[in-house]
């Protein structure tokens, strides 16, 4: 078996003709984390639903551990865990009852379901809340319970649909640690996320999805290197100056300089050594930056370049 998860020319069309998934291909190596990265509405969740046998594809094929998701759905279900976007727990059941139910439905038997549930409650620091109804849980606790439910029958392939959306930084970190531990033990994880930082941190291979198909694929560093080695941000005192710098540098270096507010961003193909050249060019036109910032490209940059949209508003990792 070559890949743990494989999708070939997958298509899903919803009522009204929306092609949520439109000829998507992917291969996930066993024992790795694969990140599906894309904005809201890119089709990530639909892909996960097809791969977990919740939806039927309209065209194309997909398999998990070599089992076809349509004709061998039963075998797929026995080997996968799914933690969806909405923390699908029964609010009226306690944490323990939720896990026991899922355990029984995954054929563990009541006794083993309860003992496995208790282990997982401990792993996710929910032991104290085990006998409380899930409706009293915080968002983070629900997510943890949901993930525990996905892990109950020790699946070898785990699907996590935006597992940390809406979580506080502490819970997010804790969840990342759990995911890393699972992968160390041999679990294959397919993760969808809008957070570039998350994909960067966890995924071995990332596929950038937009309008239902993969528009770029590679390791985080491969994707970043698509943009050149280093980026320089030149902050000017006025927008007009910034625009003049953009024109000047684009013309002289032959590279596309980008305007970001009162700053100009351009990639350096020869690294920091090139900084002096750029400053000299600007000096000869009587332009001087008020601030200068060198940084490695982030996945934000990749995403912006590929889709022309910003995926996430937030601080970028900088290197002063």
């Amino acid at each position: 078996m070559a890949f743990a998860i494989e999708a070939v020319e997958l298509v899903k069309v919803f009522k009204g003709g929306v092609r949520a998934v439109d000829g998507l291909n992917l291969e996930v190596e066993a024992g790795t984390v694969f990140g599906l990265l894309g904005p809201n509405g890119a089709g990530k969740t639909t892909v996960v639903r097809i791969l977990t046998t919740v939806f039927l594809p309209d065209a194309g094929r997909a398999s998990v551990l070599g089992h076809d998701v349509v004709s061998q759905a039963e075998a797929v279900r026995a080997n996968i865990g799914l933690a969806g976007q909405f923390a699908a727990v029964d609010e009226n059941l306690t944490g323990l009852e939720n896990l026991r139910m899922i355990g029984q439905l995954t054929r563990l038997g009541r006794k083993r379901a309860v003992s496995r549930a208790n282990d997982l409650l401990e792993l996710f620091e929910l032991t104290d809340a085990a006998k409380r109804m899930a409706k009293t849980y915080s968002g983070g606790m629900r997510r943890r319970l949901d993930l525990a439910a996905a892990l109950l029958h020790s699946p070898s392939v785990l699907f996590l649909d935006e597992p940390t959306t809406g979580l506080d930084p502490y819970s997010r970190q804790a969840l990342w640690n759990v995911i890393e531990e699972l992968v160390n033990e041999g679990t294959t994880v397919l993760l969808t996320t809008q957070y570039l930082e998350e994909a960067d941190r966890l995924a071995k291979v990332i596929a950038v999805v937009d309008h239902g198909s993969v528009i770029a694929k590679g390791t985080p560093s491969e994707l970043k290197s698509m943009l050149g080695a280093t980026l320089i941000d030149l902050e000017m005192s006025t927008n007009e100056d910034a625009d003049r710098v953009r024109k000047l540098l684009s013309e002289k270096t032959g590279k596309q300089a980008r305007l970001v507010g009162a700053g100009v961003e351009i990639s350096l193909d020869r690294g920091p050594a090139q900084v002096r050249e750029l400053l000299d060019m600007m000096d000869s036109a009587d332009l001087m930056p008020v601030r200068l910032n060198l940084r490695e490209p982030s996945l934000d940059d990749v995403f912006l370049t590929l889709t022309g949209r910003i995926a996430e508003e937030g601080p970028k990792e900088g290197m002063e």
């Binding site: 639903r49 977990t52 046998t53 919740v54 039963e74 279900r77 026995a78 996968i80 799914l82 969806g84 976007q85 909405f86 923390a87 699908a88 727990v89 029964d90 609010e91 899922i102 439905l105 995954t106 054929r107 439910a149 029958h153 699907f159």
Partner: peptide, 12 residues
């Protein structure tokens, strides 16, 4: 609430 989605992904 996504519960049916979960049920559908289970070997039940």
């Amino acid at each position: 609430k996504g519960l049916i989605e979960r049920f559908r992904s289970l070997p039940m």
